[in-house]
């Protein structure tokens, strides 16, 4: 046993320096060199300012904007320092209550819309920071946004189409659109 302390401790120290210091720092260097924006959190530059990250969602409650996924982070939604989901089980009454309230809020903002609500628009995401919604959820909101902004609904739908992302190589991912990108462009559209 005492004879083993030297190899065990030395190897642990060597591995700590190699995999714990040299490896991550080398990756930081290479990352900054090869993929500068991505390594720094994919910031979204807009009009000379950093308007968040294209990967981290923001909270939208103004009916003139597209709303994103409900976020279960605390104390405020889309708190990037406290990522996580709701942890509500499928039978939990708190889940049905929350979904009922979210449907009511959507209906109140858009009384004429009687379509079934796309599921991702009323369920909390796993990270609480989901930057995207499904195309169904975006199109569900198109008429409301067009009406409140005095835009032609066709233009709003065309914007969703233009910003939409499909499956990578036809296999990976789901039909979706980035909420922050949509909303930034919305503010540029003139009625």
């Amino acid at each position: 046993m005492p004879a083993m302390i030297r190899p065990a401790a030395t190897l642990l120290l060597f591995m700590t320096l190699l995999t714990g210091i040299a490896y991550p720092i080398t990756m930081c260097g290479l990352g900054a060199m090869l993929f500068t924006g991505q390594a720094q959190g994919s910031p979204l530059y807009w009009g000379g300012r950093t308007m968040g990250s294209r990967l981290i969602g923001q909270n939208f409650s103004d009916p003139r904007y597209f709303w994103g996924r409900p976020s279960a982070t605390t104390p405020q939604p889309y708190n990037a320092l406290a990522s996580g989901g709701s942890n509500l089980g499928p039978l939990n009454a708190a889940l049905t209550t929350a979904v009922t309230e979210r449907i009511a809020a959507l209906r109140a903002a858009d009384p004429g819309n009687t379509a079934a609500v796309p599921v991702d628009l009323v369920t909390a995401s796993g990270s609480g920071l989901d930057p995207e919604i499904s195309l169904a959820a975006a199109n569900y909101q198109a008429d409301r946004i067009a009406r409140l902004r005095g835009l032609d609904p066709g233009r709003v739908r065309a914007l969703i189409r233009a910003k939409s992302r499909g499956k990578f190589l036809g296999v990976l991912g789901e039909p979706r659109v980035n909420v922050l990108e949509l909303n930034l462009v919305l503010d540029l559209l003139k009625s």
Partner: peptide, 8 residues
């Protein structure tokens, strides 16, 4: 979709 990410 409760607890799942849109992209996945």
């Amino acid at each position: 979709m409760e607890g799942k990410e849109t992209r996945f």
